[in-house]
């Protein structure tokens, strides 16, 4: 099987994860270029509908990253997101879409290395998983 290049959409919260990704860049850390980052103010802004739409449009993986527990700038956005993603993953399992395609991570502004590691790991995992079965489907 010819190797495919996973396409990852990352929703990164402005205050932690996005700054972490920035740090990974300014520290010149190496990580795969498969990630398309979307900056949001808080991980709590991520509506499961965004993730479903990304999957529908053929994204192979979706990374949602926010502040560590207790650090969310809006108090509880990351707690809510954690529950949303858990529930969404249950739904995906029933639809036979691998729930591991959707990941939620806590990445702080100082964790450039963690961001690079998460992305590297996710890309490797998605390579094993294969492309999103909905890719190329258009109706």
């Amino acid at each position: 099987m010819s190797e495919y290049d996973p396409n990852i959409i990352a929703f990164l919260c402005n205050w932690c994860a996005y700054a972490g990704a920035d740090l990974a860049g300014t520290s010149r850390l190496k990580y795969p270029s498969n990630v398309k980052s979307i900056r949001i103010m808080c991980s709590g802004r991520v509506d499961p509908v965004f993730i479903l739409e990304a999957l529908r449009e053929g994204a192979d993986g979706i990374l949602v990253a926010g502040c560590h527990p207790g650090d969310c700038h809006y108090q509880s956005g990351n707690y809510k997101t954690s529950r949303k993603i858990r529930l969404l993953r249950r739904l995906l399992r029933e639809l036979n879409m691998d729930p591991e395609r959707v990941r939620f991570e806590h990445i702080s502004a100082s964790e450039g290395q963690k961001f690079a590691d998460v992305v590297t790991d996710f890309v490797n995992e998605l390579k094993v998983m294969g492309p999103n079965p909905l890719k190329g489907e258009c109706q």
Binding site: P48, V49, L52, P69, R83
Partner: peptide
């Protein structure tokens, strides 16, 4: 909304287990 289920997951996850969520 584009997707009823996604919306409901969002609504439900925002209120379920709110107490002492930390």
């Amino acid at each position: 909304s584009m997707d009823q289920g996604g919306k409901m997951i969002s609504a439900l996850a925002s209120i379920l287990g709110l107490e002492g969520e930390e």
